[in-house]
Amino acid sequence: MALFLEQLLNGLATGSIYALVTLGLALVYGIMRILHVAHAAVYTIGAYVGLLFFNLTGSLLLAVLGSMAVCALVGVAIERFVYFPLLKYPPFVPLIASIAILLSVEELCRLIAGPQILTFNAKLPFPDFHLSGVTVTSTITAVYCITAAVLLLLWFITTKTELGLAMRAASQDMAVADAMGINSHLIVSVTFVIGSAIAAVAGILVGIYFNQVYPTMGAIPAYKTLALIVVGGLGSVPGAVVASLLLGMAETLLIGYANIPLPRDALAFIAMIGVLMWRSQGLLGSR
């Protein structure tokens, strides 16, 4: 029982990290209808920049803040200089550009930092928990707390603030939002700032969680998050979060219990195929 609970808690942590990465993708799809594959590149940059700042300053807080700032800039640059000029073309054009960015960033990281796996030896300032045989490590506690804080903040921004209202309006119809005086393009940029800053946090968390930072760390998240936003319902942020948490737990339990010779990363795609066949709008998507 204790083992099962521990597996479940680990799975929830994995799912939380998936959620942090997928959020940006869901936000961007919601407002721009672009599959932002390069979001995984932003996440990779987040991990590298976080590690760099951590090694330079020794402060995890500075590393996180610095990385969030750099990723926000990278995200806005991708939006302004790549996606925006390509919006007039069919959606596969920005998608191809997005894949190109992902590959370029991987190669850039390899060139600058080397192909080897770097370690991220940081201790997250969160406590361990021991409850009747179940151990929750400080890293997992950190993942929970940070994910909860990010989700809460995002919920607050989108439902309670003027900015959030403008974001929701612009994501439904940018032309109408413009006619109502909302600077939709600015709102799109703000969306990229938010999504990319969250990706930076996710990159650093993953770096510390697995104690690994490497050039292709974004490859699996790149396609897994795509599957997740489809499962959750394209454009639905709550759907993306629910799908991420479920997948994290399903993967962990599958590896822990079922002796199926199935690579864990295939599960996301089996779920995606299932959802497309039985509920094509996704778990929480609307038609």
């Binding site: 929701r168 309006a169 439904q172 109408v176 109502m180 005086g181």
Partner: peptide, 27 residues
Amino acid sequence: KPFAHLTVLENVLAARGIAHYRHLPKI
């Protein structure tokens, strides 16, 4: 072209935000 997923009130509020949108959004 209503903002279909917003409530009726939110539709008007979104337009009423005009005074703020001209500057950086007041988060």
